[in-house]
Design a protein around this nucleic acid. Structure first.
Lengths: 338, 338
DNA sequence: CTGAAAGCGCTTACAG
DNA sequence: CTGAAAGCGCTTACAG
């Protein structure tokens, strides 16, 4: 049979109130009484029932995270830092994987917000704000992560890549590149949009070739990355911005497979979403734009806990910045005279 | 204010019992009554409180997964298939990341088993069964995933790599390799142990060089992989078994960086834990041992739900098998006459 | 310094 | 076909 707080109270000869208070240190209990309670707890092997407690208090100490793709290492790393942040504060993390599917996102938001978690972190795959907005119960704590909406109703933590991308394109232009291609993730995502607009602005400002076919969108499915790459190679690109960490590693593999040399055959600017020896090995052959994924996780955790603990606190729109790292080795000599 | 089941009952002019039964389809309700209830629900925007419900029924419809390293793509993929399996059956997934730290595992098992989840899936990092065993409340549903203990008390789903590794070593021997090195994960893990014993048996059977220094253990930290590799290269290995998917991709990168050719400079047998274009690109230059990670996730989900729904069902020890894939291209010609 | 008791929002025998 | 009511295991005013 399950051991309850009344069993402990009975054995210790006190009220359940006293047992509760000694467990939770929530009012003074005399040393003698405390001892009796603790002994009773030990003797019975009592563990407070988390379910009853959270029902009673209304606090679950659990946060939900709606992730578009948990097997994408960017999000896996995000989950990792987030879980660490939350665990340190005695919160648990429930994850729901949407696979970039809006219906799945909808179902999951519904389920999780119905009393399962205290707050929700969402990297949304939705393209319209209203559909998203309708799913959220009034006053339910929500923080958008990585991907945001134009309407600024909810708190958010995201990463701005505008400046690094703009700079990287200009730098390619300065190096002599004329046709710089752009590969991004799904077009509907705010992250893709922002990255694209930085690219477009730089292309215009630097007078580079401005053709629709120089922009390709992947969808993380099948071999869309390879298709994007082939399309751009056909366009005779001399530079390439891969505005997505997941696709970036793939692109490098494919380029190598095709025998195209980085920094010589093509200038690559590549997003880096997470640490891996892969990035280190190629760091000297390409420019990189490094997303602050650890900070993103921490900031998201911080903000959602804050919304839960101080519901009246102002809605924060936090924007972190990526950093631009030109490649570490000098350009090959025969490159400058193209 | 929160809308409760009594608000709905009042508005619909029925008892809370009837509201509950119409929501849950748990006893016959006349069509007329049902309509009134449904309208009341819609009008008030009522959502049953999951917390109250799970407290009352004792079922949380939530499974906990204790993971050693969520940012390792093997486990991230496992989480993905598991979440999918569970979501389809209306279960949620809580994850706890231990970072291969036994104390963290202990804390997390304690927390999750105290009424937060209905059952626990554990890829344990513990080296002694007793310490693990003590943490599990009596009759609490637990299934071990990927890593198992010698004592067969709990259900488990794991992958056997004995046969593929044995075969791959023999094949290297048949090709003429004399010094085959072994790189594995932490020595204490059951997975590492099994892989190592397959290697050792094959080394003995095939009469290969049997030296302690040909076996190296990584710990997923710092640059332990590179250290292992360097140690083995110093040993003049002509073949290499990388018995860990995470380390395998790193090894390939490093070999390439060092200018050592696969299949020529060194024969590589590499674990593949998950799908990526990386593996495809190198599939023709190395042998691979592919772990059935999707099946592993499904089987784990299946078994934990079964333990929860039929506590008396026999404890299952499920062992899946990896598959061995010799490389797809012929060996280079000048290799056979070594 | 501590206890008696209400009540969180559901589900579910029991009764009719 | 439906209702009245107990009760899951806690926490927390209220009272002394």
């Amino acid at each position: 049979m399950k051991v309850t707080i009344s069993d402990v109270a009975k054995l210790a000869g006190v009220s359940t109130a006293t047992v509760s208070h000694t467990i939770n240190h929530t009012r003074y209990v005399s040393e003698e009484t405390r001892d009796r309670v603790m002994h009773a707890i030990a003797e019975l092997g009592y563990t407070p029932d988390a379910s009853a407690r959270s029902f009673r208090t209304g606090k679950k100490r659990t946060i939900g995270f709606i992730v578009p793709d948990i097997s994408n290492k960017f999000f896996a790393t995000l989950v990792e830092t987030l879980e660490e942040y939350l665990a340190q504060r005695d919160y648990h993390l429930v994850i729901a994987n949407t696979k970039e599917n809006m219906d799945r996102e909808e179902t999951n938001i519904r389920l999780l917000s119905a009393g399962l978690v205290d707050g929700l972190l969402v990297a949304s795959t939705m393209d319209e704000f209203d559909r998203f907005d309708q799913l959220i119960p009034a006053a339910f704590p929500v923080v958008l992560v990585d991907r945001v909406f134009p309407v600024k109703k909810y708190g958010s933590v995201s990463v701005s890549n505008f400046q690094p991308i703009y700079r990287s394109v200009c730098r390619l232009a300065g190096k002599g590149d004329r046709r710089v291609g752009f590969i991004g993730g799904p077009e509907r995502l705010s992250t893709t949009q922002e990255r694209l607009s930085a690219y477009r602005q730089a292309v215009a400002d630097c007078g580079l070739a401005d053709e629709e076919s120089l922009v390709q969108y992947g969808d993380f499915k099948d071999n869309s990355t390879l298709r994007c790459l082939d399309a751009l190679l056909q366009q005779q690109c001399d530079g390439l911005i891969v505005a997505n960490g997941l696709m970036a590693t793939e692109i490098i593999m494919y380029l190598q497979q095709k025998g195209i040399q980085l920094g010589n055959g093509i200038d690559l600017v590549s997003f880096i979403d997470y640490n891996s020896s892969f990035n280190e090995v190629y760091a000297n052959a390409m420019d990189s734009i490094v997303q602050p994924v650890d900070e993103l996780g921490r900031a998201a955790g911080e903000q959602i806990l804050r919304r839960i603990e101080e519901p009246e606190a102002p809605v924060l729109e936090q924007v972190l910045s990526s950093t631009y790292h030109p490649h570490t080795m000098p350009i090959s000599w025969n490159h400058s005279d193209r």
